[in-house]
């Protein structure tokens, strides 16, 4: 199971990456996509939506299941990954790259420091 060192994680299996310009990119983990199976539909709250930490920012649907997406830190959605809306299987193929979900403007970037590190996330999901 791939868990990149440079990302931060939530207990709900989202990852977040702070960019040099102060925005942050959010997606779901390799573990999450593997648990879900074939992802066939992604629905995201509109660009411009302001959300609190842990608020639902959308849903991903696999063939058999629906899962809500939780925002790792408070902020405003500034972009969707349009490619993933068109081709949700990108999340299965490349969860940390082409399968990213949204870009946000974090309200308080320090919140990111409070999230799980790669090691902590790894121990949470257990050795698989």
């Amino acid at each position: 199971m791939h868990i990149p060192q440079e990302l931060r994680y939530t207990r709900e299996h989202e990852w977040i990456r702070l960019e040099a310009d102060g925005t942050a990119v959010v997606g779901i983990t390799d573990f999450a996509q593997s648990e879900l199976g074939d992802i066939v539909f992604v629905e995201l709250k509109p660009v411009g939506t302001e959300l609190e930490q842990n608020a639902v920012f959308g849903t991903v649907e696999a063939v058999k299941t629906v899962s809500e997406l939780y925002l790792p830190v408070a902020g405003q959605i500034i972009a969707h990954n349009e490619a993933v809306i068109q081709d949700p299987a990108l999340i299965n193929r490349d969860p940390y790259g082409a399968g990213w979900l949204i870009r946000i403007q974090p309200r308080d970037p320090a919140q990111i420091e409070g999230l799980l590190s790669a090691e902590e996330y790894q121990s949470m999901i257990g050795v698989r």
Partner: peptide, 19 residues
């Protein structure tokens, strides 16, 4: 991927449901 179904442990999928 094995899942419980009707009291059995059954395969849900091997490579993916769509494939």
């Amino acid at each position: 991927r094995m899942v419980p179904f009707a009291g059995f442990e059954m395969p849900l999928h091997y490579r993916g449901i769509v494939e």
